[in-house]
Design a protein around this nucleic acid. Structure first.
Lengths: 124, 124
DNA sequence: GGGGAAGTTTACGTTAACGTAAAGTACCTC
DNA sequence: GAGGTACTTTACGTTAACGTAAACTTCCCC
């Protein structure tokens, strides 16, 4: 009763090629079930793909996205590892803060650019 | 009396190599003055470099940054071009909005991840 | 049973964004 | 004037993230 997806369905939904999705699997970012040769994607796989593409829009490398995926799952019971994970999470958070600041600066620069452009238009 | 910078100074300040700065010039993103063979960078050049690096942190390609740089300068008196420019500015703005949304989603996901990790730590 | 349509593997090709190395010039200093 | 430091050009190398093509299987449909 749980929904599943074919590779083509996911490709269409997220506007990527099937090659891209298989490549992500090759890089260890996805590991869908198989029915014979054919890949069967679960809702969790779909969520992972969404996470990867969100990362891409923010300029993350696939290695960074792989890291993000691991953050999103415990996958360890080792104290050392869990504490290291907390640090990596904090680092990512700091990076996102920097990106936020960068976006805000760019937004005001676009404001300026637009104002000057409109000004140039009125003086024609 | 206006301050200038050598390529090495800029490289040190922004933690990039001189090769990178020359590459940006090669791609038409920078065009510093010359004294003989040597490149002399103005404060405006420095600002442009800052803009490029800010774009990089947000995952922009150099082509996108080149576009951004052009947005930031009028460089035209043609009505068509100015109106086209306004559209490109609006597009960029929309892209930044998407990135903002993506960051917010990732931030709450990091919140979740951290909470779960801390929980896993307490149950050791 | 002859096509499509959608899936598969394998493998070589491509582009962006530099890295790296070589070989030379300009200036400063001891 | 020998060496050091910072600059220059030229050119080949490298990595990430796929694109593209070929050759194959599976399933459905008429």
């Amino acid at each position: 009763m749980t929904t599943t997806y074919s590779i083509g369905e996911l490709a269409r939904e997220f506007d990527v090629t099937t090659r891209t999705i298989r490549f992500y699997e090759d890089q260890g970012l996805l590991s869908p079930r198989r029915r014979g040769q054919t890949r069967i994607y679960s809702p969790a796989d779909r969520t992972t793909l969404k996470l990867i593409l969100r990362g891409k829009r923010l300029g993350f490398s696939l290695a960074e996205s792989r890291d993000l995926i691991r953050m999103y799952r415990p996958a360890s019971d080792n104290r050392q590892q869990l504490e290291a994970l907390l640090e990596r999470i904090a680092d990512k958070r700091a990076q996102l803060e920097r990106q936020l600041a960068d976006i805000r600066v760019l937004q005001t620069e676009l404001d300026d650019a637009e104002a000057r452009t409109r000004q140039a238009l009125t003086t024609l």
